[in-house]
Write a protein that binds this DNA or RNA. Sequence first.
DNA 1: GCCTGTAATACCCTGGAGGCATCAGAGGTG
DNA 2: CACCTCTGATGCCTCCAGGGTATTACAGGC
Lengths: 295, 295
Amino acid sequence: MDVDLRKLRYFVAVAERLHFGRAAEALHIAQPVLSRQIRALEEELKVQLFARTRRATELTPAGEQLLADAVPLLASAEALRRRVTRAARGAGTFTVGFMPGIIVTPAVRALRERHPDLTVEVVRTTWDDQTEVILDGRVDIGYVRLPIDQRGLRVRPLTSEPRVAVLPSGHRLAGKDLIGISDLADEHLLQDPDAVPEWRDIATELRRPGRRRPAPAFHAVEEKLEHVAAGHGIVVLPLSVVAFYTRPDVTYVPVTDLPPNQVCLAWDSARRNPLIGEFAAIATDLHATGPSPAW
Amino acid sequence: MDVDLRKLRYFVAVAERLHFGRAAEALHIAQPVLSRQIRALEEELKVQLFARTRRATELTPAGEQLLADAVPLLASAEALRRRVTRAARGAGTFTVGFMPGIIVTPAVRALRERHPDLTVEVVRTTWDDQTEVILDGRVDIGYVRLPIDQRGLRVRPLTSEPRVAVLPSGHRLAGKDLIGISDLADEHLLQDPDAVPEWRDIATELRRPGRRRPAPAFHAVEEKLEHVAAGHGIVVLPLSVVAFYTRPDVTYVPVTDLPPNQVCLAWDSARRNPLIGEFAAIATDLHATGPSPAW
DNA sequence: GCCTGTAATACCCTGGAGGCATCAGAGGTG
DNA sequence: CACCTCTGATGCCTCCAGGGTATTACAGGC
């Protein structure tokens, strides 16, 4: 009748590795069990999921489709679990996520005033988990910075702010009033290139292929600034972030041909919680009519 | 580890009825089994879901939360099942849903030309199932008419078209060039009031409470027109629909204070299928630059 | 021809989901 | 107040699905 989430989880493990033995190991079960479960899933769905040649294992089109659907489904199931537990603990809590540099206080205060009995919490996110926390139920609504993977989310634009290049104080470009992306082509970018898509378009053509890979293992703003100060490279950040996390040994320069960073509200598109809509309205309102922020 | 979808289904059955016996009956299982399963679910989540007083059963806040999350999760699971089966049958098929009066041919043809090996199918929907078919996997993308419940969907506006009142040919208003909603206040609306939200705002105040309820059991356009012709009442439809399903014994009149009907593209926000994005781009493009339709 | 790596098969054991019969407590009723 | 009814909970049985171990079957490489 219903699909079994356990079987789906097993399937995903195999589909991601294309190897029963290693998948079984990762799942902490014996390999024959996994073989049988997958076969059972195939029989239940009346569909072949893997093309098994004795030597290799690969996905059929149906398997590809299942993988694409199973991953978000499992995430939703996990989110459901988390939200129920949260709902039990704090009968009335509402959690707002935000990226560094975004001011959430006015909107949060407004929501508290309208619902005196409600506990409103805030959670700081990073570039990597800003959408994750929404989909897994840790926050009810989040202030996010584009670009993001919008799958499973509803997104409403709020505002945008210019981005600047953050450099060590002694850097050759440190004194400039204004630079272009091409001036930075030889710099090492200390952050996820997805956060600065234009970087790829313009800079990567100039870069030698053998160059050291990005792979930054630090995600918080403070860590990035620390590395910039140490001269390991540069980062590109929205102006408000730099203004907030100011420190003497790094400086910043506006970059002309870098489009502004778009700040949006995002929430789980499958949910129906009146507070989400209410908060979104408040926040949108504040950003439209309220006092303009520093940038 | 994972939640059990069967238990969730059982929970929803009880939560919707607030009665174990009747829920068990609806699920075709014995009542003690259901009691035990719910209790097991509560223990697994470490949360009390129902407040059981010996005489009544009601939901706790955690239960409310679970109900809100479980319903879409079960729907997603069902959709996953359906999509996998479809992916197995037609290795490469893409299905487009559309409401009556919307012309999909050019976009479908364009997609076919770009992917000669792809089977592109179209499905006509009704007001009631236009979003359902998207969420349960019967279509990959749908042309929908607002207002809709956007939960679980991504929606992109396409175009809008005026709406008209459809009347029997002999109706007192049949000859008019233009009427207002208030002229229709005494008419019987033969369709889901949600389809014409303004009807509620304006007309219901004028209506006596004891009036016959809407509850229309017919949904296809042809059926509505049949009933209008028979003098059972009137309907409000987008102009293109009336133009398409023309018949001699019904006529239509533009309504001044009825905002136009918004046509959008909508697809499952959790999915990642490049064809969806491609089709959306084609359709948006056609509607922006292509030949303007009849209305 | 033999060894290795990989999935499938054979067989067993346990726990959980289902059924039936019954119990227990809260309200209503004569 | 005794009794009946309605409703969910318990006790006990059966059976199958999911887990484990041992082994087989087959394709390639040496």
